[in-house]
């Protein structure tokens, strides 16, 4: 594939923007968590684009994939804990609407 890595970066930036938008605008906690996953995916894509940018005909750069592995790992942990919190929240308040969960608001 001869696509320049910059185009992968553009795709990552667009996905990142969409993730931020969903995170800020939506109030359903499931959608918010899905937006966070989108953000992490965009970060992954940038890491891999960077790895491509630094691999030439004489070799592949491996730092990008290694960091992407860590991002995937953190994403898995985050999704598990986040969704467990959603279940606990639903059991407590029967809602997944973030505006109805504002006890900590000062």
């Amino acid at each position: 594939m001869n696509v320049p890595p910059e185009h992968m970066l553009v795709l990552a930036a667009v996905l990142f923007g969409l993730g931020v938008l969903g995170f800020l605008l939506r109030r359903n906690v499931i959608v918010v968590l899905a937006s966070v996953e989108l953000l992490l995916n965009a970060a992954n894509l940038s890491f891999l684009a960077g790895a491509r940018m630094h691999s030439g005909p004489d070799g592949f750069n491996l730092l990008g994939p290694v960091f992407a592995v860590f991002v995937i790992l953190v994403a898995a942990a985050e999704a598990a804990v986040g969704l467990a919190i959603v279940i606990a929240l639903y059991r407590l308040k029967q809602t997944v609407h973030l505006d109805q969960v504002a006890e900590l608001k000062g």
Binding site: L9, A13, F16, V20, S46, G50, H54, G59, L63
Partner: peptide, 30 residues
């Protein structure tokens, strides 16, 4: 505005920082 700004900064930031060499690259032969 926030989303667009963050996306743009991330794009420009990653592009510029990736253009430089970065930490000693680990490269393997194809």
């Amino acid at each position: 505005v926030v989303a667009g700004g963050l996306a743009l900064t991330s794009l420009l930031g990653t592009r510029d920082s990736m253009a430089s060499a970065g930490p000693e690259p680990v490269v393997v032969r194809p």
